[in-house]
Design a protein around this nucleic acid. Structure first.
Length: 288
DNA sequence: ATCCAGGATAGCG
DNA sequence: CGCTATCATGGA
C-alpha cells in the first residue's frame, strides 16, 4: 500500500491515539495500524506531515479532526496554571470523530476499568467477533456491528473479561440492532435530547453518554466527568473545599471551560492521568 | 493483601 | 438531591 501525505499542524498522532478516547490502534513500523470505520488504515507522523494508507485523505482528515479550528480552540481555554500545563503537555491532541456504535460499545465496556484494560477488552471483542481486515503486511479487526453482537451468547462476552459489563453490551446491541434507537438520527438532535436518548440504554449513564457525545457526535462542549476529572477538579478548582458533588462539578466545568469544554477536559484528563502519582511521591501535576 | 479503575443503578433519607 | 451498596475483574 502506498503512502499518501497530508499537512498536520498542531497535531500529535501518538498522543491523540493514546489519550483514552480510542483504544484499538497498534504500533506498527514507525506509525500505527488500525481501522477507520470498516477500512484498514495505517498512520504515521513526521513533524507536521501525516502519512497514511488504506483510506482516502478525506476520511483521515475527518477521523482525526484535522479540520478542527485548533488555534481558536486553544485560545478558548481558561488561563489558569493547571490548564496551561495541560495544554502544553497534551499539545496536539485532537478530539477525533469515531463511528457512533464503535464508540458507544467501547465506552459501555469502560466502566470502572483502567484504560489499559479497556484496550484489551476492545481488541479481544474485535478479534473474536469483528471482520478481519488485511492489506500488505497490515492486519486489524473492524469493530463488530450491533447485529453481530446481538447474536452472541452472554457467556461469549463474559469470556472477553467484560464482567458485569457483558449484559449491558449485549442488551444495548440488541436494542440498537432491533431499531430501538437510531444512532445516526441522533446527529441532528440538540445535545441534550441526544443525551437523554443515550442514557435510556442499559449501562449508559451521563458520563458514558458524554463520552459518546464528545468522541462520536462532535459535541465539543460535552464534559465526561470520570474519577480523574473529578479528582483534578477537587484538587485544583475546588481545592480545600472538601467533598464536592458531581452536580456542582458539572455546573462549574461547563461554565468555566466554555464552548470547547470537552477539549479542555481531554487535555486535562490526559495530563492528569499520565503524570499523577501517589501523594507521597510529590510528583502530581501541580507540584512539578 | 488491599485499593482502585474514563460507572450505572436501585434503594434510602 | 445526595449518599450507599452492589456489580466482576485484573492491575498496581
Amino acid at each position: 500500500m502506498s503512502l499518501h501525505s497530508l499537512p498536520a499542524s498542531h497535531f500529535n498522532l501518538e498522543k491523540t491515539l493514546n489519550s483514552g478516547q480510542v483504544f484499538h490502534w497498534m504500533p506498527h513500523n514507525s506509525g500505527f495500524a488500525g481501522t477507520i470505520g470498516e477500512k484498514l488504515a495505517y498512520l504515521e507522523q513526521h513533524g507536521e506531515t501525516l502519512l497514511f494508507s488504506g483510506v482516502d485523505a478525506n476520511s483521515v482528515t475527518r477521523y482525526l479532526a484535522l479540520d478542527h479550528p485548533i488555534e481558536q480552540i486553544l485560545d478558548s481555554f481558561p488561563g489558569d496554571t493547571a490548564m496551561k500545563r495541560a495544554a502544553e503537555y497534551s499539545a496536539g491532541i485532537r478530539i477525533i470523530r469515531q463511528p457512533a456504535w464503535e464508540c458507544l460499545a467501547t465506552f459501555l465496556t469502560s466502566a470502572v476499568k483502567q484504560v489499559f484494560q479497556i484496550r484489551g477488552i476492545s481488541l479481544t471483542i474485535r478479534s473474536r467477533f469483528g471482520q478481519r481486515l488485511r492489506g500488505g503486511n497490515l492486519c486489524a479487526f473492524a469493530y463488530p456491528n450491533p447485529e453481530i453482537l446481538a447474536a452472541v451468547r452472554l457467556e461469549q462476552l463474559i469470556e472477553c473479561k467484560l464482567g458485569f459489563r457483558a449484559q449491558n453490551l449485549l442488551s444495548t446491541a440488541r436494542i440498537v440492532a432491533g431499531g430501538g434507537i437510531d444512532l445516526e438520527a441522533l446527529r441532528i438532535l440538540p445535545t441534550e435530547e441526544a443525551r437523554q436518548a443515550l442514557v435510556q440504554l442499559p449501562g449508559v449513564g451521563e458520563k458514558i453518554a458524554n463520552c459518546v457525545l464528545l468522541f462520536a457526535y462532535e459535541r465539543l462542549d460535552a464534559i465526561p466527568i470520570d474519577v480523574w476529572i473529578a479528582r483534578m477538579l477537587s484538587d485544583v478548582y475546588f481545592k480545600g473545599r472538601g467533598k464536592i458533588s458531581i452536580t456542582e462539578m458539572k455546573a462549574f466545568a461547563s461554565m468555566y471551560f466554555g464552548v470547547y469544554a470537552g477539549y479542555a477536559q481531554q487535555y486535562l484528563f490526559h495530563h492528569w492521568r499520565m503524570t499523577y502519582r501517589k501523594k507521597d511521591d510529590r510528583s502530581s501535576p501541580l507540584s512539578k
